[in-house]
């Protein structure tokens, strides 16, 4: 690992260690937060008792569905919107302010329409993820150097060939950003909905534990979410760096 990587690891471990000491020594009261080591132990117990698996499968399944829908629809929509510059100019202010509107307020509306199933939650996760993908697809397409498109015209390529062989690879780094954000936003949408109304899933279990002053379960579940999302994010980050490395060389 590089020097930077070691420093980063030291900082992360140091912060966790500090938190541990603060909690153990009582500076942070156990009613506020239990020590990280206890969270891990509680999470382990929860897993062993078999109470972890059902909400986890539920939540992760919904997130995965929302994520896949976001990426596929977001990319296609981005391509279409980019091809219609007038529509796009009109749409831009709406896209820019999109994330300020808390879409999960529509969750009850969706429940009335679709019933008390997983579908409303998946739709909320999708609504959150898809726009990140659209915005980044547009961003990437904007930055395809015109000279590369001219090369496409010189080779008399069709619109579809240009999209697949020039626009897509050229925009790839931005698409990757879109994919990473789609993961993050799908999580936010799904978990927020679970907090609000749903009767199952990790978000619901956290809210339930909170209301019952069950700090141990609550922190175990929070730890689970945070580590899962971070691990996922790190995996994507490493993959992305690998892809970008050869393209950017030493520059």
């Amino acid at each position: 690992m590089s020097k930077v990587g070691w420093i980063r690891l030291a900082i992360v471990l140091g912060s966790v260690g500090l938190l541990e000491i603060l909690c153990q020594s009582g500076v942070i009261r156990p009613l506020t937060m239990i020590p990280p080591s206890r969270m891990a132990v509680e999470l382990w117990k929860l897993g062993a008792s078999g109470k972890l698996a059902p909400p986890v499968t539920k939540t992760l399944g919904n997130v995965a569905a929302a994520f896949i829908l976001s990426v596929v629809f977001g990319f296609i929509a981005g391509l279409l919107i980019h091809a219609l510059p007038r529509f796009r100019r009109a749409l831009d202010p709406l896209l820019a302010s999109y994330y300020a509107v808390p879409f999960f307020v529509f969750y009850p509306v969706l429940i009335v329409i679709f019933g008390m199933s997983d579908l409303p939650i998946i739709i909320i996760g999708f609504l959150f993820g898809v726009v990140a993908m659209i915005i980044n697809t547009l961003n990437g397409l904007d930055r395809v150097p015109t000279v590369l498109l001219k090369v496409g015209r010189m080779n008399r390529m069709s619109a579809l060939q240009t999209a697949a062989l020039i626009k897509l690879p050229s925009a790839a780094p931005y698409l990757f950003t879109g994919v990473k954000l789609a993961v993050a936003y799908s999580f936010i949408g799904v978990i927020a909905s679970e907090f609000i109304l749903s009767g199952s899933g990790i978000g619901y279990d956290i809210a339930y534990a909170y209301n019952n002053f069950d700090n141990r379960t609550m922190y175990a579940l929070m730890l689970f979410i945070l580590t899962t999302v971070t691990a996922l994010n790190m995996a994507l980050y490493i993959w992305e760096q690998r892809m970008l490395k050869r393209r950017q060389g030493g520059r």
Partner: peptide, 14 residues
């Protein structure tokens, strides 16, 4: 007709 452009037009991903 073949064109060589003034700007760098190499594909960075190939």
């Amino acid at each position: 007709v073949g064109v060589v452009f003034q700007e760098d037009a190499s594909f960075p991903w190939l």
